[in-house]
């Protein structure tokens, strides 16, 4: 598994959605934020912007939910996907979504190791870092805490 990961700092994010634009441009060839692999959630009441892309969870509910094995680590095998959208329902972060035109699910694929969103993020909310084991563990822990709390809800 690739050690580099996209780290998002919601407190640095200004919500300009350039990441959505460059991501959708790279993957769909046009500007269509609704099909971006990274999405900004805006909680206007609190002035909070949260970039959400695949967090590469250790427990991977999306992979567990997939009946055909199409949903894999940082990748969806389009040939195997049957469009049941179970992975989307399973992901507690909403990091996966469904493309009604190509009729398959999608998730962040890290742009083959050179994420466009990170390059486009001028406020510096997104970073693509070689996760040292420690950082990765920390991130995993945090993700797990979040995951548990989200499940509680």
């Amino acid at each position: 598994m690739d050690e580099k990961v996209i780290l998002a700092n919601p407190f640095k994010c200004t919500g300009c959605r350039v990441c959505e634009l460059v991501c959708s441009f790279k993957h769909e060839g046009m500007f269509v934020p609704s099909l971006s692999r990274i999405r900004i959630v805006k909680i206007h009441e609190m002035g909070f912007n949260n970039p959400i892309s695949c967090l590469d969870c250790s427990r991977m509910p999306c992979v567990d939910a997939c009946p055909t094995g199409a949903c894999q680590v940082m990748k969806v095998d389009t040939a195997l996907c049957i469009g049941c959208r179970e992975c989307i329902a399973a992901c507690p972060f909403g990091a996966m979504d469904f493309n009604p035109t190509t009729r398959v699910s999608y998730k962040c694929d890290l742009c083959e190791g050179d994420p466009e969103c990170v390059k486009g993020c001028i406020p510096g909310a997104l970073s693509y870092q070689v996760g040292s084991n420690q950082a990765k563990t920390k991130r995993r822990d945090r993700t797990t805490i979040r995951y548990e709390l989200v499940r509680e809800a």
Partner: peptide, 19 residues
Amino acid sequence: ARIAGTHRRRSSEKMITIE
């Protein structure tokens, strides 16, 4: 097609509380 949006919103709200 609104599932992911709902999840995103809910998890973000949770995330604020956690932070």
